[in-house]
Structure formats: C-alpha cells, structure tokens
Amino acid sequence: MTDPREKLVVGAGWQEKLVDALHGDNVRVLAPVLTEGTAEFREISAAAEMATEWINTRTPVKAVLFPRTEALVEFERRPGEDVQFTAADNEAVPTVVLGARPCDLNALDVLDTVFNWDYRDKLYAERRAATTFVGVACTRSDEACFCTGMGGRADDNEGSDLFVRPMPDGGAVLEVMNERGAALAKRLDGAAPAVGTEELVPPAQVGAGPFDTEKVKEWLDTHFDDDFWTDMSLKCLGCGACSYLCPTCHCFDIVDESDWRKGQRRRNWDCCSFAQFTKHASGHNPRPEQHSRCRNRIMHKFKYFIDRFGRKACVGCGRCIRVCGAGQDLVDILAEITTAAS
C-alpha cells in the first residue's frame, strides 16, 4: 500500500462519465466484460458493458502490454528481387484499462523489470507508456485466490495509476497514485458528488495466510536435487495453461510465418513446462524431464527472480490453480516446501 497523492470521492455514474470522456479523447478503453461465465478485458464503448460482478479476468492484464501473439517484422520476397523487411506496425494505442485487479497490477512490476532491465523491449515499453491502469479493490474472492499469501491484499493500490475503492451505492473513493492517474482524474471534473457517507464495500476476504517466502527460498537455495521435484511433478502433464495465464510469466518464442512471398516474424507466448522449450537442434535438452521443468518454474518464481531482481515472481492471483487440468496446486506446493524447510 502506498499513500495516494490525492483522494476523490465520486458518486454513482462516474464510470459512465469517464468512459464517455475518454472516447471523446479517442482513447481506447478496456474493461472486464462477462463472456460465458468468465470475464475478459475487451474494448468497451459504454460503461454499461463493463462487468459488475467478477472475481478476476480469465486472461491477466499482462496481455494488454504483452499480447499472446504479435508481429515484430513484416517481410516480402518478390520474384527476382531481394527480400524486403520492415518493423511491423506496432504503434501503441493510447489506452485506459478499467477494472484491473490489484494482483495483476502488482505483477506489472515483474514485467516492467524484465522488459526494461539492461536492454529495453521497445514494444512493451511503448505500450506501457501509452496505457493507464485503473485498479479496483476486490470485493469478492474465490478459493483459489491467495494474494494475501504473497504479501498482497484485496485492496492494494500498488501498481495502479488510479485506484478505485467502490462504495455500495455505485460511488467510489478514487486514489490518485501518480501523474497518469491525476490526468485521468481530471477527466472526471464535474462528476456527480457522492451522497451520504463514504462507506466502502468491504474488501474481499482472502483465505491464504502469508507464506514465509524467505523460508521457501532458503529451502530452494539448497534443494536443487531433491525427490520432492519428482513427486510433485508426476501429476503435471506439461501443458502451458498455468504459465500462459500467469500475470508474471513472460517467456516467449520468436517464429517466422509466411507463404511463399509474404510473411511475418512474430513473438508468441512460450512456456518452460514444454518439453521442447530448451531442446537444441542437436537433440540435447538441458531440461529433459518434467521434474526439471516443474522445478525451473518454481525456482524461477521463488528463487531465481529474487536472486536476480530482488522480488518474487508470484502475486497470488490463483489462475494457475484454477486452470490446471491435472489439479496441481501452487499453494500446496509452497506449503509443502515450507513444511520441509521447518
């Protein structure tokens, strides 16, 4: 939690006003929209399209900055001529994301770190600069949520440009966190003032107690070789669902796709659980077994990333638990490691 620069209290109807104002500015507005029992970030044209009751979006907010597939280079080969190539048109569209959850916004810190340390990823950086994130406190959670286990909370304003604390009557307390949030708040000038008290919808209760991630790391530091990895990975089927939908996972592949004449070099999400991920053309594979790949995923989140960048790469959004077809449960894995470490 960070102290906001400024607080605004607005009455019901503020979202409509904001969305309309942004459309007037030709800004793209993304918000959670309900689709078949789940919510996804979609472009909306009116605030009414926005979900009112949702726990979290199926796809994390990372996809706005780091889409699952995108063109990097366009190329064309005309008969008798040299191949021509140019950067793909990736101009960042000015965007406001409404209704992002605190866990997802917390995860942007991990992505910011990776895409900017040393070399800067231009595509990510430009999208990041063009996007304003409006976070909203969670008022509901499900049994997979474990942000509290990772040191987060349902009403954490960290990572938001503007943070929304909803009130029962549709009004909200808005916390301006930075310059970008302030610019957005300005568009709300003249919004209906709140009526009555500033009573908030209570933030969601999230079950998971805080994990001692330092203890987890201590164990990981000394247990690269351990039967634990074989045991925990037997269940894992080696798909990419957990990583793809993880708000902090950022591995990618670069591939060329073309017909005979024209094509693109594209960047696609990739995943360290895949058997082929590290396999060399020679056939040598540094991580040949599922347990080595499962271990890498856990190590990366709770050891390597900390060693390297000083923070863990998990925010407790619970998506990996919700989507795992094999019933793998990260909370249980961490609990087991904690027990083993004690």
Partner: peptide, 16 residues
C-alpha cells in the same frame, strides 16, 4: 537455446 538474446524470453537460463 535463445530466442531474444537480450535477457527477456526466458529460454536460456541456467539457474539465475
């Protein structure tokens, strides 16, 4: 194996 060459794509890590 590498894809990005610049410490982003996560493929070539050995430990940290």
């Amino acid at each position: 194996r590498m894809k990005c060459g610049i410490g982003k794509c996560g493929r070539c890590n050995v430990g940290n």
